[in-house]
Each structure stands twice: as structure tokens, then as C-alpha cells.
Design a protein around this nucleic acid. Structure first.
Length: 565
RNA sequence: GCGCCUGUAGCUCAACGGAUAGAGCAACGGACUUCUAAUCCGUAGGUUGGGCGUUCGAGUCGCCCCAGGCGCGCCA
């Protein structure tokens, strides 16, 4: 589709003495497609030539002549609007999708480059709540988007498997724990113990000290502590795996915080050698006051380590191991300062690659006007959400498509897809209030809507019964409902690029909704399978292309695209 | 107190600094003997939290307020 924009630029270069870059910056999309497909605003020229913009637009539009791809040039106020030759545009877009198939929208900007994505990273021994879903699905989508740009992606699940929380759990387990309960419902039971710990610690401050002591013993390799820790970790991982299986998300590495703990001493030595370490109130810190930040704590006064130190060690290790061109941390916005500190410390250590490290924050999920908190026990379990979504999907399918075969599998794809889509559909920095009614609404701008459109178009292809050969008369598709679809299809590669550049999968969800709107309008107003082969050939190709792009788009979001539902 | 994020229709959200601020949900009214009605069409709904500024042009950029959220030395 480049040739259309290029021709607009070429035409304007002849008509003015602006450079290619200047012109490109001034080209936009008219608010109403009736006006045209590309617009050029004359305000900058007006300033240069010191003439009113609408006069310039009028003069220029008269002088500029349409060429191969542009069929009409018209001024409207201070704008010059360019209209593409619809047949040529349709031909170009559909041809590109048809020949490219699943690679349509892919780029090569990342070929030969590696990006490390740190995402999901749940805390061991805590249930996988709806709050953990965000990092998981945003991170997964970012991986897929970067792969589409040609990057090699290393997916890292930086498990929260170290820290004072284990001291707390060990304390709680030693005091109140029962082996039998642990076997019956491992994570649920650990969760109960964790909540109980915080409840009792309110009254009895010595519990916190006891927990710190246990954590210290864990760091020193105490046998009993290590044994319990290792058990807690194993049973948690098995439960997390169930969630990842349902989401069909995998990782290249599960090296969590405990893995980097072995590198703490050398890391602190390196920091010391760089002259960055200072002692303050018994703890080791890096003073960041010069940079307007609170100090970065490396080691507590009792000698045990902290999260920031482990993150610094992890970054160093990852660069050594993967030589990444970029590293992306998909972690909640509440940790923004933490990453600023970590990045600054790495910078002070002379790691110039830190400029390629980026924290991609997201807003938190609240439940009932409150922040979800494992400690308080105010948490919605992801598995409950999945289960309810799938149950509801089965109900809807019984009502709308009772004859459908393989309902369970499809209900899973649709139910879970709905949850993922909902989580990805608004800009990631927005906080979301979890509401069952909203999550379980499958009408309107939702995942099931996109999947439904995909299934509907798949169904037409099935009914067509032949291979789509890609041979067609593009003039059949120049009427509005069809051309609106094509116009949207043509935007797809740019959406892929922007979603990746801005780490913003919501651009993709919103795009897919636009595409589906146009596609369903087309479907409702144009019969695809007709007696006229000229019309059928063209429309079925459009259907094929919509299906291809919807399938690819859903895939980039980590959502399944069933052929029937 | 300081810093960051968010504020757009009753609700949830869109809108490369550009033309008349758009969708969905909820409400009301229409469209299935025809390729899946989880769809589509229509009606109604707005001082873009407030103010000042920059600009030919501001929901978008800057400053000051307001409201909510999140951070701010031994949690992660």
C-alpha cells in the first residue's frame, strides 16, 4: 500500500518545494472517508508563502494532476484531499494479503535482533489472581508483536520465588501448618496461611521478626528452611502451569529471583568497585539523591538481600547470556520508581545497554473499590474467572448454536479469549475495576464479537467449498461497504508496528473491532455466495482476507480463532 | 509534603497537534423463508475535571489548581 502514499508525496513534491519528510509529516487521514483517503494540510505552506491556506489549497489542487493510483485531488478549505483509485487499491491490498497469507503485517525491522521480555512473574506460594493476568497477557502479546517485527524473543518468567514472604510462610507453616491440608489444596492452603500470618502479625509484632529470621536462615542455606521453600515452590509451579496451559503461554526461562541470589555477592562487589556503595543505618545502599531519587537498597542491616539487588544481578546476567538488543519489563506501574532506580544503578555501573531497557507499566486491577491484596485475602482467582466464562459460553452456545460439535473446546477458546481480550482492550495504564457483569458480557466490543466475525467468515468460506484462487475483478469491491473493509485491512501492518513500538496491545484490539464493524456491515449488506461468478469471486476473496487478518490479529493477542462457534 | 499515572456521553472506553470529539454497554424503535441475529440499522445522550497560556489550530503541548489512584530506606 506504500505506493499510494508515495504517489501522494510525489505529486506534492512537484507542486511545492517541501522535502519528502516535511510532506510526509503533513499527510493525514481525513475525518470522513467521503472526503478522500489522504489529506494534506496547507497551514505550513501558508506560513512559508504568507498566503491564506485555503487559497493555497485551491491553487495547488487545481495544479496537481492525478496519476496512476490517485484518481481525484480536491481542495476543501485549507486541505487538499486525495482519493485513491479504488480498484487499484483493492487489488493491491487483497493481492498482498492473499499472497502473504499469515505473514501479512510482518516486518523485518527486528531480523537478527533479540528482545528479552520479562513478564507474568507471579509470586510463588500465592494464588494466581486476576491481577497477575495483566502482565501475563500484555507480555505475551508484546512477544508475539515483536516476533511479527522479526525479533527473536526470549520469554522470561521472573518468578517471585525469594524474599521475606518465604520467611512469613515458613513461620506460619511451622506454627499452624498441617501436612494433610497442604496436600489437599496446596496453593489454597498456603494462601490461607499467608493471610493468617498477616492477620496475626497485626496483634503480635514478633511474628514479623520471626519471619525475617527464617528468611535469613533460608539465605544462609539452612536445611529445614530450604526444604520447605523448595516444597512450596514446586507445588506452586504446578498450579501456575495449569493456568499457562489454559492460556497456551510458554516461557523460555523460569529463572526467578532465587536463581540470581547466588550472584548477589559478586554484584555487590562490582558495585563496590565502581565506588557506588555506601553504608547507611547499617544497610548497604546506592545513594541516588543526585538524581532526585531515594536510595537503592542493596542489603538489609541483618545481611539479607533485597529485590533491587536481585534485579540488578538479573539484568547483568541476562545481558551476558542473551546479548539482547532490547529488554522489556512488563511489570505493574506501582514499581515504576523501582525500575528507575535499577536502571540508574546499572547506568552508573557503566552498562550503556541499559538505554535499551524499558519498563512497560500497567494499571492495577481493583475489586469492589479496593486494591486487590493477597495479604488481605481480597482476591479474585483467575481459575474462577476462566471457569465462569467458559460455563457462560457453553450456555450461550446451547442457545444459539446447539448443533455445534466440539462445544467444550470451543467454549474454552471463546471464554478465555473473552477474558484476555477484555484485559487487553483498554490502554494498559488505566486501572480497571473488576466487575463480573462486564467481564461476562459477550456482546458489543468484546473478544467473542471478533471471534464470531471470524467464525462467520470462516463459515462462508466453508459453504463456498472451493479453494479461493485469488483471481478477481476489483471493481466489484469498490462500493462502500466492501471498500470500507479493504481500507481497514490495509491498515493492519501499521497497527502491528505501532502496537509493538508503543507496547500497547490495545491498539490491536481496537483495530480488530473497527475491522469487524466494517466486515459485519459488509456481510449484512452484500451477499457473498451468488449466482454471478464475477461477484462471488471478488467477495469471497475479501472474506478470505478478512478471515486471514482476524486470525492473525487474534493470534498476536494470544487469543484463539475458532472456525465455528 | 514530594514524585509519577489517570480524568472525555449515565457506565466502560476511542480519537499521528488538525476538518462537525467517535464506539460499545445500558434505554427506546426497527431488520432473520436467504452465506451463523454473539450481527446490523436508527433515536437519544458532551462546557473533553477547572483556569490561564503556547499555536493559524488544543481532548491532545506548558504552567497552576481540583478529584481519584500509585509510589517515596531495610516487602516484592
Amino acid at each position: 500500500m506504500k505506493q499510494f502514499l508515495k504517489e501522494v508525496v510525489d505529486i506534492l513534491r512537484e507542486g511545492s518545494d517541501l522535502t519528502e519528510e516535511e510532506i510526509k509529516g503533513l499527510i493525514e487521514t481525513p475525518p470522513d472517508p467521503q472526503l478522500g483517503d489522504y489529506a494534506f494540510s496547507c497551514f505550513v505552506l501558508a506560513k512559508k508563502l504568507r498566503k491564506p491556506p485555503d487559497i493555497i489549497a485551491e491553487g495547488l489542487s487545481r495544479r496537481l494532476k492525478p496519476r496512476e493510483y490517485i484518481s481525484q485531488i480536491k481542495n476543501a478549505g485549507p486541505y487538499i484531499n486525495f482519493t485513491v483509485d479504488r480498484s487499484k487499491f483493492t487489488e493491491a491490498v487483497l493481492r498482498e494479503i492473499f499472497t502473504g497469507r499469515d505473514s501479512f503485517g510482518d516486518w523485518e525491522v527486528g531480523s537478527g535482533k533479540t528482545v528479552v521480555v520479562d513478564f507474568s512473574s507471579p509470586n510463588i506460594a500465592k494464588p494466581f489472581g486476576i491481577g497477575h493476568l495483566r502482565s501475563t497477557v500484555i507480555g505475551n502479546s508484546i512477544c508475539k508483536l515483536y516476533e511479527s517485527l522479526g525479533y527473536k524473543c526470549i520469554r522470561i518468567n521472573h518468578l517471585g520465588d525469594w524474599g521475606t514472604q518465604f520467611g512469613k510462610l515458613i513461620t506460619a507453616y511451622k506454627r499452624w501448618g498441617e501436612e494433610k491440608c497442604l496436600e489437599e489444596d496446596p496453593v489454597g492452603y498456603l494462601y490461607d496461611l499467608y493471610v493468617r500470618f498477616h492477620a496475626e502479625a497485626q496483634r503480635d509484632g514478633s511474628l514479623e521478626d520471626e519471619a525475617r529470621e527464617w528468611f535469613k536462615r533460608l539465605e544462609e542455606g539452612d536445611r529445614e528452611a530450604t526444604h520447605l521453600w523448595s516444597r512450596f515452590k514446586d507445588i506452586s509451579l504446578m498450579e501456575f502451569q495449569r493456568i499457562y496451559d489454559q492460556l497456551e503461554i510458554g516461557f523460555d526461562s523460569y529463572t526467578g529471583e532465587s536463581f540470581y541470589n547466588a550472584m548477589i555477592d559478586e554484584t555487590i562487589e562490582r558495585l563496590r568497585a565502581a565506588g557506588l556503595v555506601r553504608e547507611s543505618q547499617g544497610a548497604l545502599i546506592v545513594d541516588l539523591e543526585k538524581y532526585g531519587m531515594p536510595p537503592c537498597l542493596l542489603r538489609k542491616k541483618d545481611g539479607s538481600t533485597l529485590y533491587a539487588t536481585r534485579d540488578i544481578a538479573a539484568a547483568l546476567y541476562r545481558f551476558r547470556t542473551y546479548h539482547f538488543d532490547r529488554m522489556i519489563y512488563v511489570v505493574g506501574a506501582d514499581q515504576k520508581l523501582h525500575f528507575q532506580q535499577v536502571f540508574k544503578v546499572l547506568d552508573l555501573m557503566g552498562c550503556n545497554w541499559v538505554e535499551n531497557c524499558v519498563h512497560v507499566p500497567f494499571g492495577l486491577i481493583r475489586f469492589g473499590q479496593e486494591r486487590m491484596s493477597t495479604r488481605k485475602g481480597n482476591i479474585v482467582l483467575l481459575e474462577d474467572v476462566f471457569r465462569k466464562a467458559v460455563e457462560l459460553t457453553v450456555e450461550i452456545m446451547e442457545e444459539k448454536n446447539p448443533a455445534l460439535k466440539g462445544k467444550e473446546g470451543i467454549a474454552k477458546d471463546v471464554g478465555i479469549g473473552a477474558i484476555i481480550f477484555a484485559d487487553l482492550s483498554s490502554k494498559r495504564m488505566k486501572n480497571v475495576d473488576f466487575e463480573w457483569d462486564k467481564v461476562l458480557n459477550f456482546n458489543g466490543e468484546t473478544g467473542p464479537y471478533v471471534q464470531y466475525t471470524h467464525a462467520r467468515f470462516s463459515s462462508v468460506l466453508r459453504k463456498y467449498g472451493k479453494e479461493v484462487d485469488g483471481d478477481f475483478d476489483p471493481s466489484v469491491l469498490s462500493e462502500d461497504p466492501a471498500f470500507d473493509v479493504t481500507r481497514n485491512l490495509g491498515r493492519f501492518p501499521d497497527i502491528v508496528k505501532r502496537s509493538a513500538d508503543e507496547y500497547e496491545p490495545s491498539l490491536m484490539t481496537n483495530y480488530l473491532l473497527d475491522l469487524c464493524g466494517a466486515a459485519n456491515r459488509f456481510y449484512n449488506s452484500c451477499r457473498v455466495l451468488t449466482r454471478d461468478p464475477r461477484i462471488t469471486n471478488a467477495r469471497i476473496l475479501l472474506v478470505y482476507c478478512v478471515r486471514t487478518v482476524l486470525n492473525k490479529g487474534l493470534n498476536l493477542l494470544g487469543i484463539k480463532a475458532p472456525d465455528e462457534m
